[in-house]
């Protein structure tokens, strides 16, 4: 069986949640070592959920840590994030998510 694209799902709640204004946002390009993200407002009782689609195996725990840290540091809440990844490193993932949030201003 050939390897298939994988889907990872996470849900976090920021320690100090902030209001998240935008309804819909798309950011990034799925280049080699890069990723794109869709951020949508969603009533989640303050939580944030992630769906990551990636060809990478064996780094689920790294994803969890990077995304949890992003949620805690930005305070993003009540949102659904969908990521299409193409072998982005943790640093690139953090950077792109922050750049996406900066687009909202």
């Amino acid at each position: 069986m050939a390897k298939q694209l994988r889907e990872l799902n996470f849900e976090f709640k920021a320690e100090t949640p902030k209001d998240f204004p935008a309804g819909f946002l798309h950011y990034g390009v799925v280049g080699s070592g890069d990723m794109e993200v869709i951020i949508e407002k969603k009533a989640m009782s303050g939580a944030v959920k992630f769906k990551v689609v990636t060809p990478v195996t064996g780094f689920d725990e790294v994803w969890r840590r990077v995304l949890e840290r992003f949620v805690n540091e930005t305070g993003i809440s009540n949102a659904s994030l969908e990521i299409n990844d193409c072998n982005a490193t943790p640093v690139v993932v953090s950077l792109r998510l922050r750049q996406a949030l900066a687009e909202i201003g």
């Binding site: 298939q4 694209l5 799925v30 794109e36 689609v53 990636t54 060809p55």
Partner: peptide, 24 residues
């Protein structure tokens, strides 16, 4: 048919290849 429509390739996931919401 922008990223919001999420019309990505139905073939790439079966080959383990990364997809994009707008299929490039």
């Amino acid at each position: 048919i922008g990223p919001k429509d999420r019309m990505s390739s139905p073939h790439l996931p079966l080959m383990g290849e990364a997809i994009e919401f707008d299929d490039g």
